[in-house]
């Protein structure tokens, strides 16, 4: 299914270019002001408590030169395995829960309970079950993120207009085509929204798990704080934040590209 041209939107884009550039001028000004304030604040309180913007940039260079930053890459690789597991498990479960009343009745109480309950309480138990290695961190990431995928997918299936299903039936669509041509496309934007929210949770799970067992990025964060290398610490925090924001933005983009018809979604959670 190639992306069809989008005449209406193309026309708008030309007209809004001017306001778009003004938006970025405003952003640069305000962000610049924030960075200057940060610089002044950092110099005032001194490197023992904080790091100014320039110091943080210096810290970033040190992180890159020393190669310490690549620990983050390893952490993210491990996070992605838990996140992918959450997608692989969460999407089918969400589809089933949305489509089958029986399935939903059985799973709903557990999913809701786990969704609002404090997953963090499970950490001491998970560590006994899985040790401190790869399995433990994958499981934490998985448990933190999977319910967002499940609940959003389920909401997507349940939000499908029953009239559309009836329409497909009136054109003699067999069950599998109703699934493929109505249920899946109708749920897609919700699945993508779920994956986007889940990514933030996965990152959260990754950090908590690694701080808890003090490995990789978690160990680096602790080490830098202990030696009061706050320039490098803040640089690392900034990199994690920007990566998270970029990944979320990228998934937003995918959502808009893959489902241009779905503009506003009520997504559960966050």
């Amino acid at each position: 299914m190639s992306a069809p041209p989008f005449p209406a939107r193309g026309r708008i884009a030309a007209g809004t270019r001017k306001t778009l550039s003004r938006k970025w001028v405003q952003r640069l000004l305000v962000w610049g002001a924030i960075i200057i304030a940060w610089e002044i604040f950092g110099r005032r309180v001194g490197p023992f408590f904080f790091a100014s913007f320039t110091q943080t940039m210096g810290g970033l260079r040190e992180l890159v030169v020393s190669g310490d930053i690549w620990v983050l890459g390893e952490s993210i690789q491990q996070m992605l395995s838990g996140y992918l597991l959450a997608a692989v498990v969460g999407i089918p479960v969400g589809l089933l829960m949305g489509a089958s009343r029986k399935f939903r009745h059985v799973l709903e109480p557990y999913v809701n309970l786990m969704f609002v309950a404090s997953m963090e309480a499970l950490l001491p138990f998970l560590i006994i079950l899985f040790g401190v290695g790869f399995q433990f961190r994958t499981m934490v990431v998985f448990l933190f993120s999977v319910l967002y995928v499940v609940l959003n997918t389920q909401a997507g299936v349940r939000n499908i207009d029953s009239q559309l299903i009836e329409t497909a039936r009136s054109f003699r669509a067999p069950a599998w085509r109703i699934f493929k041509d109505v249920m899946l496309p109708g749920t897609l934007p919700y699945i993508l929204a779920g994956l986007r929210l889940a990514l933030g949770m996965a990152l959260q799970g990754m950090i908590i798990a690694e701080l808890w067992v003090q490995t990789q990025t978690g160990a680096l964060l602790f080490g830098l704080a202990e030696f009061r290398a706050l320039d490098r610490f803040l640089a690392l925090v900034l990199v994690i934040m920007i990566l998270g924001a970029l990944a979320t933005e990228a998934l937003f983009w995918v959502q808009r590209k893959a489902a241009p018809w779905a503009r506003d979604l009520a997504t559960p959670g966050r």
Partner: peptide, 29 residues
Amino acid sequence: KLARTTLDPLINALYTAPVSMLIPVIGIW
């Protein structure tokens, strides 16, 4: 409107950021 265009991206970034990564420095701050 100004705050919206300029601060929204920052707030969204902070919303998704894992704040627990600050745990090691909270003792210092």
